[in-house]
Design a protein around this nucleic acid. Structure first.
Lengths: 219, 219
DNA sequence: CAGATTACTGAACGAACATTCAGTCAGTAT
DNA sequence: ATACTGACTGAATGTTCGTTCAGTAATCTG
């Protein structure tokens, strides 16, 4: 029961409150048990409110996914850009962004999990996320290409890194008690340092002058 | 619409047919849209059949997850045992088992995905899979421990491998068109060869006498 | 303050769902 | 041939859910 801001609010504020209540419900009760009544109760509003602001339950869910997807993309993009031009620093920042407190919360991971489970049977959801996924994968692949030794297949290594980051998120979602954000980030760092020993130690990217960069990155 | 075997069948056969129809529905329509009527239609039986054989929809779903989980565990266990005593051969076989035609089908992956999405909000599902997950992770960790160089943190590497295999499955589930079983297995092989260069090439484990083992592994 | 606008309410409704169970009928035992 | 067993049916039931919309109250405008 999150407290309402005011008795009357403008549309965009109310819509955002309903989206937050939807994420709460997806995280706590799952996709199947998320009803318009639960979302309305969570926002402290009346039963018809979802249809008033979003026209249908389905459109509320689509807007919720769009919100999560936009936030995620904006977050990793700005992390990569803030890392400067060095590809190692950029890849490190990209991986670190995945385990930042901003996007990597139990609540949001659980909501992502609920959408993943439905994504394969709902083309709308996949189409919504597909451009972001492609951009992310291309960014990873481009950076990995600049770091591999000659002869190594950068495509396979990039796909592997992408899937490991995804798998770490998945594991954080399934086992939030035993597996924490910090440990997931340590696994990712270990992976980078092992696969690209010329460019990373587990403390960070190796900058051109030879010492590891102090950048810690995660949260 | 899978054809019924006979007009009357014994209970265990009918139960298995209903479980298969449930996997079909989870794969095609997702968790939310899987109803007892859809399962009954898929099995070519009447509307009340699920409650007749499973007492409730929830128990049918639990039995379906148990079936998938048991099949998966049996499969990787026997693959590892068939690989002999060498830890590199065993780890290779364990990874290869994940991408075998027996368990790694679009249909079954989609069903797994449907359960994953609900698992976080349904303790029953997690409790059902948890022992298997723990055994799998311990097996990976034990094998990785025997292969790492001194000083390397085998726990982090094992967790990373586990999550990458999981992430590859996840990616196969989300993007079955663009990403195929063979490519996922190639990514896993590349990972093993990169992280354990003393023990693997991307063609297989390096056997004690120095030449790569011919074992290909993935169905 | 009057009138208009806008945000919101909640009772009502129909559709979809899981579940029930009296009845049906194939197969089996006697 | 007869009686019996047990698998299966499908109409009926009560519940839950998404959606609708006439009504209400807060806020704005002039």
């Amino acid at each position: 029961m999150r407290p309402r801001t005011t008795r009357r609010a403008d549309k965009s504020l109310r819509r955002q409150e309903l989206i937050e209540a939807t994420i709460d419900s997806l995280a706590k009760r799952g996709f199947d048990a998320t009803t318009t009544a639960v979302v309305a109760d969570g926002a402290g509003l009346s039963r018809g409110i979802v249809n008033f602001h979003f026209e249908s339950k389905e459109k509320l869910l689509v807007e919720t996914l769009r919100y999560l997807s936009d936030e995620y993309r904006t977050h990793w993009r700005s992390a990569v850009n803030a890392a400067g031009p060095d590809p190692a620093a950029r890849l490190w920042a990209l991986a670190a962004a995945d385990f930042d407190r901003k996007v990597c919360t139990q609540r949001k991971l659980a909501a992502w999990g609920a959408f993943w489970g439905e994504a394969k049977s709902r083309p709308t959801y996949r189409e919504l996320c597909s451009p972001n996924d492609v951009e992310y994968q291309n960014t990873v692949a481009d950076l990995v290409r600049q770091l591999v030794r000659p002869g190594q297949d950068y495509r396979l290594l990039a796909r592997g890194l992408d899937c490991m980051l995804n798998g770490l998120w998945h594991h954080l979602m399934i086992s939030p008690r035993e597996f924490k954000r910090e440990e997931a980030w340590a696994v990712a760092r270990m992976h980078l340092a092992t696969v690209f020993p010329d460019h990373f130690t587990d403390a960070g990217p190796i900058v051109p002058d030879g010492r590891p960069d102090g950048l810690e990155g995660a949260g």
